[in-house]
């Protein structure tokens, strides 16, 4: 399964009321290309912080479902976030890691995710639901559990490489914030 196929399957399963934070690099660019929406916060900088932004949102908006999508390079940069999320354990937070074993966005340099049991880390930190999906079939099954009580951690194993000729996110950061905030709190 390619990263963009996973992003496609995940975004198709959403009802549009969720708030989505996507992480630095190709993940945000692919999400933008596949399904641009005001409820997507394309985090183009601050690598590693997607799940932390997700936590701040989840704690403040308990009625909203919050989905943070990031890469293995990104979560390895902010492992402390797993500890904080596990501790506060917001029921409405879904943390998805698209694990291709590399920093694909900067040329495919290897990360160390092949020897780190990230699902085990999330489980040990206190996430209520953790699951690994290594194929489209497994991801399809995992997606049916998205509405269960979180915090949930989904480790999705994907292949290296992405969509050809990917553009950049075309909205300005301020625009991304304004339309996202409107979806989040209606202002």
């Amino acid at each position: 399964m390619k990263r963009y196929e996973a992003i496609e399957m995940i975004s198709q399963s959403l009802n549009g009321n969720e708030l989505v934070i996507s992480s630095t690099g190709m993940i945000s660019r692919e999400l933008f290309t596949i399904r641009d929406a005001p409820q997507n916060f394309y985090m183009i900088g601050s690598m590693g912080l997607a799940s932390s932004i997700g936590l701040g949102l989840a704690l403040s908006l308990p009625e909203k479902q919050i989905i943070a999508i990031e890469g293995d390079g990104s979560i390895l940069m902010n492992m402390g976030s797993i500890a904080t999320i596990g501790h506060f354990a917001p029921k409405n937070l879904i943390h998805i890691v698209l694990d291709n074993g590399t920093h694909d966005s900067t040329g495919g340099q290897a990360t160390v995710s092949d020897t780190v049991k990230l699902e085990g880390v999330a489980h040990a930190a206190g996430y209520r639901l953790t699951q690994t999906a290594a194929s489209k079939e497994e991801l399809r099954k995992a997606i049916t559990r998205l509405s269960q009580q979180g915090p949930a951690f989904f480790l999705v194993k994907v292949e290296e490489g992405g969509l050809e000729g990917m553009g950049r996110v075309l909205h300005s950061p301020e625009e991304i914030k304004n339309r996202f905030q409107k979806r989040a709190i209606g202002i």
Partner: peptide, 21 residues
Amino acid sequence: IPATREDEALGIATGAYLAGR
């Protein structure tokens, strides 16, 4: 909310701000 690092704290605060805090 105690954070593990200052960058994480800024991420959490950013989420809270987006949520109207």
